[in-house]
Nucleic acid binder design. Structure first.
Lengths: 188, 188, 188, 188
DNA sequence: CATGAATGAGCGTTCATTCAT
DNA sequence: GATGAATGAACGCTCATTCAT
């Protein structure tokens, strides 16, 4: 991860990758991403050694962005349920307002180009959310389940919820709440 | 009068595809699948016009197999919860005992080579399960949610559960039950 | 050239080849020709050992048919010019009324699948016409040119004439006469 | 700033295509053409998007070269016959001295990969010759024939003449004159 | 002999990556 | 560093021909 000259160009590539992956999938040519970024195809490889490197970096960036969006404005004093709902709403809002990022992240998440290391790092960025979740379920029926299981379920319910919010934006808020309630029933 | 198209060869190809997709993903060369099936690469195209056709056929076959496995031995007289749990357990068992099929199906499900028609047909094979689910949530908190939302959540919780059962086979049964209980709490 | 059982099937293949070549060119799959003939693809090869063999046989057949059509009803007693014009008209009529055969023949003529032997044999079938041509030019300006040269020119002018007759059928007769007159001026 | 697209390499490919097509026909693999040009197979597609594109470009180049060769040194003040003969001789000389180009052009001319647009453009390059031909026949017996018909006949007689010049180079000049005389008789 | 499945070499094209400018 | 041409392995699919039935 050498520090290349132009941070600007690097982010142009990353942003282009989001758009291109969202619309064409992970099979999209690097040349297309470079073009979308307004950069020569060869230049992409000065910023990311391989296509897989770009994907891993993008994965991490999106994870981090999502995590940070989720925690924004967290009411520190509120009870767990309120805090959790705040985080949940933030996540849903981020997904709905950045559908391309969400789609790209979804694709990356199931790709086998993403290394275990990246996945681990990705989970770390979500540590704040996980901690909340940890406490939320502390006295509930899933108190003894592996944490990873709980996280997976939350993600899964979250994904389903996002899909419905995007498909039916008029009722986005309702879907968001319904999803959260279902999750809360499952774990708390 | 001529060498008939051999059902045996067809299934060899399908079975090979399962193995190859499980280990190499959907990007695996058709030639690899053919070789794994012990067939000339050209022969694959006698049975499936296109790589995508093979994928769609495989998707449907796996969906059907999973559905049929899920419903096997359904206790017709039991209450919904028991019936649902039966189906759930069957699904989990199928996934755990056919991990390659499960991985292949997971990949196919997110692929954009699978046509809407195939997806629709795939959902039809799960109609029996869906009907059960329908009645199970009839009086619960999700009684007014779109059915598709409920299905998605069930699948998501199921997927998460399977992963944990496979990762930690010693406690497979426990995970299966925990997953089901979480689902039941969410919807009934 | 073993004698296969069904002469009928053989000609079905040949006839199919004419149609298919006319519409798809020489690159058309043998399977397409077989299908058009209502025969299994493998059967084609009991009648013609290779695709090239089929082409050569077809070439000869079309050449022969054209030659025979050209000489039909030749007025034995008339002068050369009249005889030549008769032959010329017959050729043009054949081409115009069998456009597929003509197109197929044109393609075969320039193909390098046609062996020199076939070409020689093809020319032989045109011997009657050539003899006429021979005498026609006997006292004209091309009396010393190689016969093959004269034949080539005749074919060339003939081809051009056919094209115009087909393109503009209303004036077919006029074009036919104009072509013949041009040829006659050139050689007699 | 980057390695510029090398005109040299482009012409190497075009020249290689001439040779390969002359000896193996239009069915020759692009890989063979690339190899003959001393280029990686992929590079061919940097210069020509498609095999058909290469063919069309080559067709145009050969047409243009032939046209330009035909008109070289045209005696502006001479009468039509002399001018026509000059053009005719130039054409024949070009064909005889570039037999591969001539063969390649002949194959391309009958190929259905050549688009109508290319054909139209090809004819434009021959406009100078056509104009001459137009005036040459103005008072002759073909004065009312469609121009396209006249052109076709000229090409046909020309092709036949070339063949004989190449087959019998000792008498090339004689054949050239004989061909021209035949043409002139036909049209003027 | 008829059939059509089986075979596998072969082809046009793509694309991640390298490298000359 | 930036550029984009160069590279060549790889892929999906075709099709003439063979051969089991």
């Amino acid at each position: 991860m050498a520090k290349p000259r132009s941070e600007e160009k690097r982010s142009a590539i990353v942003a282009a990758a989001v758009r291109v992956i969202a619309s064409q999938g992970l099979g999209a040519p690097t040349a297309t991403i470079a073009a979308e970024a307004g950069v020569a195809n060869g230049s992409l490889f000065t910023y990311f050694e391989t296509k897989a490197d770009l994907f891993n970096a993008l994965y991490l960036e999106l994870k981090a962005e999502m995590a940070s969006a989720s925690l924004k404005g967290l009411p520190a004093k509120a009870d767990f349920r309120k805090q959790m709902f705040h985080v949940w709403s933030n996540s849903m809002d981020w997904a709905v307002s950045s559908p391309e990022k969400r789609r790209a992240l979804a694709q990356l998440t199931v790709s086998d180009e993403i290394t275990p290391a990246s996945r681990a790092a990705g989970h770390k960025t979500m540590a704040g959310v996980a901690a909340l979740l940890q406490r939320a379920r502390a006295n509930g029926p899933m108190r003894n389940a592996p944490m990873a299981f709980v996280v997976t379920i939350m993600n899964a319910v979250g994904d389903a919820t996002m899909d419905f919010m995007i498909q039916d934006p008029a009722n986005a808020k309702k879907h968001s709440k319904a999803g959260f309630d279902a999750l809360w029933r499952a774990l708390a």
